[in-house]
Design a binder for these strands. Structure first.
Lengths: 347, 347
DNA sequence: TTTCGCTGAGAAACCGGTTTCTCACCTAGA
DNA sequence: TCTAGGTGAGAAACCGGTTTCTCAGCGAAA
C-alpha cells in the first residue's frame, strides 16, 4: 500500500542538501544560502535551486540545523502534574506565546515527585534552548542548582532570590486578602482556611496572606486545616468544616471549594445561608456550580504567556544585560468574583 | 552573580567529547564507547574516562547525538485545543507512556484551526521521530497526505481506512447505545440529543450510535440539535431543551450536560423528576454536580497510552512488517455510570 | 619459534546542515 | 589599458557526536 511503499523502497533515503546541490549544479553552500533567503545569490541561480528543491521535495533536516546553529528553537516546560488544570493552563499559555516567536514546546511531567524534578528539568533542558519551571516542589538548594545548570530558566509561581532569573507568580497573598475582606464585610467573624499541599510555595503565599488579613482584622478568628488540592479532598472535609463552627470557608483552590459544596448539598447545609464558601482560581466550573462559586479570578494562561515573554527577552540579549530584561518576580494580581456561594453571616 | 558568571565568562564554552578525550588521554571514539557503556573498552581506560567526565562535568550534546544517530527520541503530539480536558488527558497519557520508553513529547496546539493542522503536524514531525494526531479536524484527503508525509503517525479518535496506521479511538457509538438503553429502560420515549462540533469525527460516531439505537427502539423519538461542546453551550441550550418536550437529554459531552444542569437549577426544573440528563466522558466534575451526573466513563488517558504503545511498536519494527504491530483501529469501550441525574420518565 | 586470529583502541569518515575563507571575475577609476 | 575594489560562488572547516575501518599487540596453536 501507498504508505508503506514511501516509507521503504530502494529510493527511500531522505533528500539532503547535497542532492539538491547536485540537481541544481551548484554547491551545498549556495543551496543553503538560497533556502535561507540570503540575498547574496544570483537570481538565476536561486531560481535553479528553488526549482530543484521543489522537484526533489527537499526539506532541510531540523536536526542538522540544530547542531550547526547551536540552537533548537524549542523550550522545555516542566510541570509537577499534567492533570492539574492550573498547569494545563500555564502550559497552554507558554505553548501559544512561544509559537508566536517560532518556538516549540517540549513537555515534562514529574507526576508530583519532587525528587524527580531536578533530573527531569536538566534532561529536558539538554535538548532545548531554555526551560520553564512551573511550581517546582524541590527545595531551595536544589532549585538553585537547577537554575545554574539549566540556564536560561524562567520560574512560574515560585519566587527565587535571584534578580536575573525571569519569574512570574500569582500574588496569592493578595487574593486571600480580597477574600477575607469580602467575608468580613459580610459580617463573618470566624473563618476556616482549607489548606493545600504543604510543599507548595503557593500555599505558603496564601498562609502569609492569612497572616496579613488577621493583622488587619484583630476581631477575626481564622482556623487552618490542611486538606489537599482535589475535589475529593474538599468533599471529604465537610464534616470537619461543620464541626469547626466557622461561618465562612476559604479554600486553597476551586477544586476543594467545589468538592465541599457538593458534599454540603448532600448534607442539606444551606450555602450561603448557614455557611459561605470561597475558592481561588476561577476555573470554568466555578460559574456553574450550585450555588455559583465566589472566587478570585486568576489569569492562569497569562502566567504562561508572561513567563515565555520574559524568558525570551533574556534569551535574545544573552550575554548583554540580563537584568534589563528580567527584573525579578512580576506578581500578577487577582480579581474577586462575587457569586452565590457567599452571603451575610448567620445571626 | 553566580548564575551570570557561569553563563558567560571566558571559559564558558561547553565541554565537548574532545575535551574529555584530551583530559583522559584517549581518542574521542573511546570516550563515546565508555559513555555509552560498550563493553569493548579496557577497564583501566574506562575508569580514566569516567574520571575525566566527572572532573569536567561532561554531558553529551543531545543535538549532536540526534544528528549522528538519526533519531531524536522525541514524539510530537498535535491537538486541536490544549484547553479541552479531553486532549489534556490524551496528552498526559502519551507523555507518561512515552517517558517510560525513554521518549519526550513535543506539543503542538492548532487552536481549533483545521487549516493549520497540516503544516503544524508536518513541521512538528520534522524535529521528532513520530507523530500522534489527536482528533484531527482536517478532511480525509489532507489527512491522507499527512499520514504519508509524517509517517510514522498514530491517530487518536478518528478512524482512517489504512490498516498500517496505528489507531485508537473511543467507541462513542457504543457509549450512546448504553445511554439510550438506560433511558429507555427508565421509560423515556422522547429524547433530545445535544450535538457537538459538526466537523468532529467523534460527533459523527455518536450520531451513528443514535441511528443504531433508534433502529433497536422503534417506539422511540430522538430529536437532534447542534449546540457545541462547552459549559456555556450547555447552559444556553436550556430553553430549547424545555421547548422540545423531551423527557431525557443526551449531551455530546459532560461539559454540555453540566452547563445544562446548572441552568436547569436556576430555572427550578427538577432533575431527574421532570428531565433526565446524561453526559459522555465522566470528567472528574461529573461526580460533584447537583445532582451527580449520569454519564459514560471514557478512559481518556488510556487513549494516549495506547496510541503511544501502538506507535512505538510500529517504530521498533520499522521496515519489517508494520501490519503485525498495527492492526487498524482499536476501539475502546465505555462504561455507563448511573448517578443522580437520570430517573424514571415523568408520567 | 613462527604464524594465525582475536582483542581493543585510534584514525577517519559520516550525519546534514551553516559559515568562514578563498579566489575568479567583473566593473569602475586612473 | 591597467589596477584596485567589490561581488558572488565554491572549497573546506565546523557543529559534536557515532561508527566503520585499520592496525598494533597479544595469546594460542602448530
Amino acid at each position: 500500500m501507498a504508505i508503506r511503499d514511501t516509507a521503504r523502497g530502494d529510493t527511500a533515503r531522505r533528500v539532503t542538501i547535497a542532492d539538491v546541490a547536485t540537481e541544481a549544479g551548484v554547491s551545498r553552500a549556495t543551496v543553503s544560502r538560497v533556502v535561507n533567503g540570503l540575498a547574496t545569490v544570483d537570481p538565476a541561480i536561486a531560481a535553479r535551486v528553488d526549482d530543484a528543491v521543489a522537484r526533489l521535495g527537499y526539506r532541510p533536516s531540523e536536526t542538522a540545523r540544530n547542531l550547526s546553529l547551536g540552537r533548537t528553537n524549542t523550550v522545555a516546560v516542566v510541570v509537577p502534574d499534567l492533570g492539574n488544570p492550573m498547569f494545563q493552563a500555564i502550559l497552554r499559555g507558554v505553548t501559544r506565546a512561544a509559537a508566536a516567536d517560532g518556538y516549540r514546546v517540549l513537555v515534562g511531567d514529574t507526576q508530583e515527585d519532587a525528587a524527580a524534578e531536578k533530573d527531569a528539568a536538566i534532561e529536558a533542558r539538554r535538548r532545548c534552548d531554555a526551560l520553564v519551571l512551573c511550581g517546582p516542589r524541590m527545595d531551595d538548594e536544589v532549585l538553585d542548582e537547577v537554575l545554574v545548570a539549566a540556564s536560561p530558566v524562567a520560574v512560574v509561581n515560585r519566587a527565587v532570590d535571584e534578580p536575573a532569573v525571569p519569574q512570574v507568580a500569582m500574588d496569592y497573598g493578595q487574593a486571600i486578602g480580597l477574600i477575607i475582606d469580602h467575608l468580613v464585610g459580610l459580617g463573618h467573624r470566624h473563618l476556616l482556611y482549607l489548606g493545600g499541599p504543604i510543599a507548595s510555595a503557593s500555599n505558603r503565599l496564601r498562609m502569609a496572606g492569612l497572616d496579613d488579613a488577621a493583622a488587619r482584622h484583630p476581631e477575626l478568628r481564622i482556623d487552618r486545616r490542611t486538606v489537599g488540592s482535589s475535589l475529593d479532598a474538599g468533599w471529604a472535609s465537610a464534616e470537619a468544616v461543620l464541626d469547626s463552627g466557622a461561618t465562612g470557608v476559604v479554600a486553597y483552590n476551586d477544586l476543594i471549594a467545589l468538592g465541599l459544596l457538593s458534599r454540603l448539598r448532600e448534607l442539606d447545609v444551606a450555602v450561603p445561608g448557614r455557611l459561605s464558601v470561597v475558592g481561588v482560581d476561577d476555573i470554568p466550573f466555578a460559574r456553574f456550580s450550585t450555588p455559583p462559586l465566589t472566587t478570585v479570578h486568576v489569569p492562569q494562561e497569562e502566567l504562561g504567556v508572561r513567563a515565555w515573554q520574559r524568558l525570551f527577552a533574556v534569551m535574545r540579549q544573552d550575554g548583554d544585560d540580563p537584568d534589563a530584561a528580567a527584573d525579578g518576580t512580576r506578581w500578577l494580581q487577582g480579581r474577586l468574583e462575587v457569586r452565590g456561594s457567599t452571603g451575610a453571616a448567620p445571626a
